[in-house]
């Protein structure tokens, strides 16, 4: 995959190569940030790491190495099967590599979604990537054991459904992974606009199956089986996850994640 950058990506009027000369000419005064910005503009090819977020371990293997940047990935499956753990693994991969991530939860009391209905939707068992309409959130201890760098992870809470799209769009400008629980209704034009923005910024959006675009890549947790819990004794030990990866309703891969990888 080779991508030739077009000149003046951020609306600059100068050609990058000319600016390069200008900056190199006063190299002793150029700040590292300036140089890094320039390097990106004049580099002939995009590196693999810029097109795919590498995810280590068995999950990464199942995903074919990682998650594609600039695309939406829908995480779904029944509650309690292991969606949160999968999302945490992706967040750990991103924040561990020095990138920034944001988690968006929707205000359940917002317009069109009274508190009760959010929960009732949960009874159906397959709605949000995390929590039930803002009721739940990631366990911090679980996040730490998954390897998430909490100082590069922001939580945006109680987003009113009608402002969801604009908030997510703002976050796409700053973070390289956005995990957003979708509001009950995401309109198709909004989704298209977000997708265009994602592509431009090469940002990953993880969301749930309320995302209207059916062609999005999909990671579905089929089941998660914990072991170690008996009737009255024993304690939770490890878990086996069955996960399938689909694109346009075509199955790309199905696999079982080893217990060690799915601890969480």
């Amino acid at each position: 995959m080779v991508e030739v950058p077009h000149d003046g990506r951020d609306g600059g009027r100068e050609r990058p190569s000319l600016r390069a000369l200008a900056v190199v000419g006063r190299a002793e005064r150029a700040s590292p940030a300036e140089l890094a910005e320039l390097a990106e503009q004049i580099r002939p090819v995009a590196l693999a790491a810029e097109l795919v977020l590498g995810v280590p371990g068995p999950l990464g293997g199942l995903l074919g190495g990682g998650l594609p940047r600039g695309a939406v990935t829908v995480v779904d499956g029944p509650l309690g099967a292991g969606r949160s753990s999968l999302v945490l693994e992706v967040l750990a991969a991103a924040t561990g590599a020095g990138e920034w991530a944001a988690v968006v939860t929707v205000n359940p009391g917002g317009a069109g979604a009274p508190g009760g209905s959010g929960r009732a939707g949960g009874a159906g068992g397959s709605s949000c990537a995390l929590g039930r309409g803002g009721l739940g959130t990631f366990g911090v201890s679980a996040a730490i054991s998954a390897g998430v760098a909490l100082d590069r992870l922001a939580f945006v809470r109680r987003v009113p459904p009608e402002r969801w799209a604009s908030i997510v769009a703002s976050l796409i400008d700053g973070c390289s992974v956005v995990v957003a629980e979708a509001p009950p209704q995401v309109r198709a034009p909004e989704a298209r606009r977000l997708l265009a923005r994602l592509r431009e910024r090469r940002v990953i959006l993880l969301t749930d199956d309320r995302w209207p675009d059916r062609s999005a890549r999909r990671v579905r947790v089929l089941s998660g089986r914990w072991s170690g819990l008996e009737a009255g004794d024993g304690r939770l030990a490890e878990r086996e996850l069955r996960v399938e990866v689909l694109a346009r309703d075509r199955r790309l891969a199905t696999g079982t994640l080893a217990p060690a990888a799915a601890a969480g």
């Binding site: 920034w100 990631f138 945006v156 809470r157 987003v159 604009s166 976050l171 400008d173 700053g174």
Partner: peptide
């Protein structure tokens, strides 16, 4: 970049709508 985006969201939703753990 993250700082700018997050401050903008803070401006839209309020200071404690964006938190870190």
């Amino acid at each position: 970049q993250a700082a700018r985006a997050l401050s903008r969201v803070q401006g839209m939703l309020g200071h404690d709508a964006v938190v870190t753990a």
